[in-house]
Design a protein around this nucleic acid. Structure first.
Lengths: 341, 341
DNA sequence: GTATAACTGAGGTGCGCACCTCAGTGCAAG
DNA sequence: CTTGCACTGAGGTGCGCACCTCAGTTATAC
């Protein structure tokens, strides 16, 4: 049996092509009876829309934009590469992807930038930015203007009406806690926690998740207060030195932030921290190499390529007024060891 | 600037639409000069083929087939579900997916089945079956007849000319070894290894990977000889009982096979094995629940949904005489703990 | 009853490309 | 010079659907 077309469907439903079109595309002026007959016929003859023909007839170009931080280290680079990759691949699918790099830690500037995005230019926007009331409002206004929003890997408190792509950071922190807890065994000890800044919501969430596991499952371990490097190499060395002097039984270190180069370098250079178990977040050239050479013991990661593709699929679905397939868009919390890199 | 079409391309290259068509689709009777001019024009004006239009004009239905085992437990069910899911999703992409369930452990029957697959019926076949010379030959003949082959999650020695979807089982075993080694700490002990059968190549590979890590990195641990359950509950209980009687310092168990229900049940019912660390392969309703309740400690998994979609993308690319995007098709070795389920 | 709105069908156009035919043109071998 | 072959261009058709127009029909309000 050949694949039924809309014409076959019209015939089977006993209506005209025009009515089939009205039903399929939710246009007005269709009686309940006609709609029902069409839907029944769809079931009966197994009609499935030919998406290629739809795309061609609509002849619409989808325009999506990623708003990413302007400053960052290797993880940001990784992300940018994945976006560029997706952009290339999707060109043949009538999808154009652009990237704006903004000082996302300046809520004022970011809000202005978001406000300047025009409905005519863009069908969907994926934003990665730290939380702030101003930004939240700007995002809300963006959606009000009919632009589909994806909160992308970021520490925003989730807007109920927006889609979210990324992992549950509480669970990611808990996973790190489980790894460190099990790796350390039964001897008591302390765990050093390092972040770029604890203002970021993702770091806060991870810390909460981490503590919940350590406190419940591994009470013989103690997680020290979070250290903040502010992305500064010498500051990192200084605060770590300070902690080492005050605690002589540090057995592990957990780096909360996506960029781990600075804290891990400081740790591996410290004579007293050669044997500690180190867990970091996100796979980057640095963290990969560190895992390979044994400077760190595990990486908790979310695949940026998956995240980018997922964000695009979601924006695409929203632009077509479809619902994304939730199951497929879940980003996994990956545990990387030396052997499964 | 509007998106350039083939017509624009012809104009820019100074040739006719017919020649553009000949170049784009690798048809004969094109001079090197014409071809060069077209390719230069593609770069110059940034021409990108509209895949929707291509698909529509070709009006080709892609037919792919999965050849899977007829007997199995939850992991097989999981796979079947993912295939069915992909089948539904891809119908609107002119892709029809069918499943054949064969007694894949009977090389003769499987070979006959593969031989009966007609080029007219199918564009690509994904086969999951244990290794045997007969089957390898049948697969070779399949490819000779122009049917694109994907070796799917299976223990075949990889055919050089076929695509492969699945994880490196040596690495998967090594990952299990690292997990168990680190979880056990520094005290000496023994590790029980259980498989359905050690005939399967994937189990052999995993065992090799596992041993390589244990021997190198954790010499105070000893992996016992592999036990084979043959999928039999009472046999499993008996052989495990036997091992426990002979070894009083079993501290971990590693289940090599994708179906872990029978061995894990036997282990958790055994009074002397309540505290052992258990690592299994593949996420199933059973293994998920076992991880949640603490009967097992980690799952090494490959996402069957990813695997199915990857296999389809590869077959699709091959059918279009394109090369698959290798980077995107790599299946990850996932480490699942209670916290990142 | 009539006016109005809600519906329906017939038909056409175009999206960008693949694939086909056929009438050329140029070039080399014999 | 003829013959044959490689190459080229012009033009057409159709893929399945979205989107449009407009005439015609029914149902509803008044």
């Amino acid at each position: 049996m050949i694949r039924p077309t809309a014409k076959d469907l019209a015939e089977a439903a006993g209506v005209s092509l025009a009515t089939v079109d009205r039903v399929l595309n939710d246009r007005p002026n269709v009686s309940a009876r006609a709609s029902r007959r069409v839907h029944e016929a769809i079931e009966k003859i197994g009609f499935v829309r030919n998406l290629a023909a739809v795309a061609l007839a609509r002849n619409k170009i989808y325009r999506f934009r990623f708003v990413l931080p302007s400053k960052g280290d290797q993880y940001l680079q990784e992300l940018l590469q994945r976006v560029a990759e997706a952009s290339r691949t999707l060109k043949s699918d009538l999808t154009e992807i652009t990237v704006d790099q903004i000082a996302t830690d300046d809520p004022y500037q970011l809000s202005r930038h978001l406000a300047a995005i025009e409905t005519e230019d863009v069908d969907g926007v994926a934003v990665m930015a730290p939380e702030s009331p101003q930004v939240r409002d700007a995002l809300g206004r963006l959606m009000t203007r009919g632009i589909h929003l994806v909160q992308f890997l970021s520490g925003q408190e989730k807007l109920k009406t927006a889609d979210f792509v990324g992992v549950d950071n509480f669970a990611a922190g808990a996973t790190a806690g489980r790894i460190i807890g099990r790796f350390l065994g039964n001897e008591p000890g302390k765990i050093m926690i390092v972040a770029e800044t604890m203002v970021a919501r993702d770091s806060i969430e991870r810390r909460r998740g981490f503590d919940s596991i350590i406190n419940e499952q591994f009470p013989h371990l103690r997680a020290l207060p979070s250290l903040e490097t502010y992305g500064d190499q010498s500051r990192a060395a200084a605060i770590i030195q300070n902690v080492v002097e005050r605690h002589h039984d540090i057995r592990a270190a957990y780096v909360l932030s996506p960029e781990s180069r600075i804290p891990v370098s400081a740790i591996s250079q410290h004579a007293d921290l050669q044997k500690v178990t180190v867990v970091v977040h996100e796979r980057t050239p640095f963290s990969e190499e560190a895992l390979r050479t044994g400077r760190i013991d595990a990486i908790i990661a979310q695949d940026p390529g998956h995240a980018v593709r997922s964000a695009v699929r979601i924006m695409r679905a929203r632009a077509d007024l479809r619902d994304p397939i939730a199951a497929q868009e879940k980003i996994r919390i990956e545990v990387l060891l030396k052997e499964n890199l």
